[in-house]
């Protein structure tokens, strides 16, 4: 698999670190709402299909960015 870094272009997946689901919104701090934090931290949508996610070009320019990958095929689409 090759990952398109917005700065360096197409590079081998081995140069990148995966950062997980980019569609999750971090709950507000200090509300005491444990359920919201549990769901944010422990539950995954884990779709079989398009997935918005973070990657970091850790062995290159070190930039973090988002992309959409189809988890059923690993095809990478438009950057969200």
């Amino acid at each position: 698999m090759r990952i398109p870094c917005p700065h360096c272009g197409q590079r081998d997946v081995g140069e990148f670190r995966y950062g997980g689901d980019a569609s999750k919104a971090r709950p507000a701090h200090g509300t005491g709402d444990m359920k919201a934090w549990h769901d944010y931290y422990f539950l995954f949508d884990n779709p079989k299909g398009p997935h918005d996610e973070y990657w970091q070009h850790v062995l290159g320019c070190r930039q973090w960015f988002k992309l959409t990958r189809n988890t059923a095929t690993n095809e990478i689409g438009e950057q969200p």
Binding site: M1, D12, V13, G14, Y18, G20, F44, N46, K48, H51, E53, T71, A72, T73, N74
Partner: peptide, 16 residues
């Protein structure tokens, strides 16, 4: 391999 996927094929960096 280290990223969620339903593809039953692996990536080369893990083979290495």
């Amino acid at each position: 391999d280290g990223f969620n996927t339903y593809t039953q094929r692996g990536q080369f960096p893990r083979i290495q």
